[in-house]
């Protein structure tokens, strides 16, 4: 059987000088081409877990780690962070933190330059990456002249150009307006067409439900749920126990069933919720 895109086994991690591990015995795996959403309250360990996948933890951000993290079948701890960045791209919350060049073209070229990609190849990749995020025609502009949503898409393009097989985004939409948020999630959806695997950390459960294949719920460093999105979000009782909320339509159908003794099938997206509700209330 082909190796999983990401395979995490018995992962426990503690930051220096802390009593309790921030991640406790984490186990999960995702296949190539899948999009995984990671949700959980602030401080649950979401970002730390993401950084274990590209080796930033523990190689740059130190601590004590047990267990294994494998990317495309190879152990992350056996590669350098630089080597890992060829396989795993990382997009942070604030795009300004990862933009540094004078023009958009140079910005996209920057990461590739560090990988030693030949010049001709670079040109092709720049064109491709900008097209993928809808920024074709912006090549000569300054990154600082872009809106927040565009900057975030540019940060994504710069990572895409490095042709990683896995893309991790840590709260990439929190600074963006609704349109900008949709733009970023649409890029995430497109990753699938390129055979890429994606991980997104976000508090936006409605978008996670609509775009992710699977969801992993972290709570105080432990995996509380790991299942297809629908299965996670329709377990309303458990979500509430973990101080989390399901999408509003799921919350509504659940409250409706409870209040009126009905049995409308819970769903996690707007369209399906409307269909399910209609079929019972005609």
């Amino acid at each position: 059987m082909a190796a999983k895109a990401i395979e995490v086994n018995n992962l426990t991690f503690s930051y220096p000088d802390t009593d309790e591990p921030v991640l406790k015995d984490i186990n999960f795996s995702i296949n190539h081409g899948e999009i995984l959403g990671i949700i959980g309250p602030t401080g649950a360990g979401k970002s730390t877990l993401a950084m274990c996948v590209n080796g930033l933890v523990p190689q740059v951000i130190n601590g004590e780690m047990e267990g294994t993290v494998k990317v495309n079948g190879s152990e992350v701890s056996e590669s350098s962070v630089a080597k890992m960045s060829e396989d795993v791209g990382f997009v942070f919350q604030e795009p300004e933190n990862q933009l540094s060049q004078m023009t958009i073209e140079e910005e996209v070229a920057f990461g590739m330059g560090n990988l030693g990609v030949p010049r001709d190849d670079m040109r092709v990749r720049i064109t491709d990456a900008l097209e993928q995020v809808g920024l074709t025609g912006f090549e000569k502009r300054s990154p600082l002249a872009l809106s927040g949503g565009q900057q975030q898409r540019l940060a994504i393009a710069a990572v895409l150009a490095m042709r990683p097989s896995i893309m991790i985004m840590d709260e990439p939409t929190s600074m963006l307006d609704p349109k900008g948020k949709n733009e970023v999630y649409d890029v995430l959806k497109n990753l699938k067409d390129y055979g890429m695997t994606g991980i997104i950390i976000d508090h936006e459960v409605e978008r996670i439900a609509a775009y992710c294949d699977k969801v992993l719920v972290l709570y105080e460093g432990e995996v509380q749920m790991f299942a297809p999105s629908e299965e996670v979000f329709t377990n309303i009782k458990k979500m509430h126990e973990l101080t989390l909320n399901a999408p509003q339509v799921t919350e509504f159908l659940s409250s409706y069933n409870q209040a009126f003794g009905k049995d409308v099938k819970l769903s996690t997206t707007l369209e399906e919720a409307v269909d399910n509700f209609e079929s019972v209330c005609k």
Partner: peptide
């Protein structure tokens, strides 16, 4: 304005 009401309001509008 490029805005969308909360999901529950979009739902109510349709049902």
């Amino acid at each position: 304005a490029g805005l969308q009401p909360p999901q529950i309001t979009q739902f109510a509008n349709q049902i």
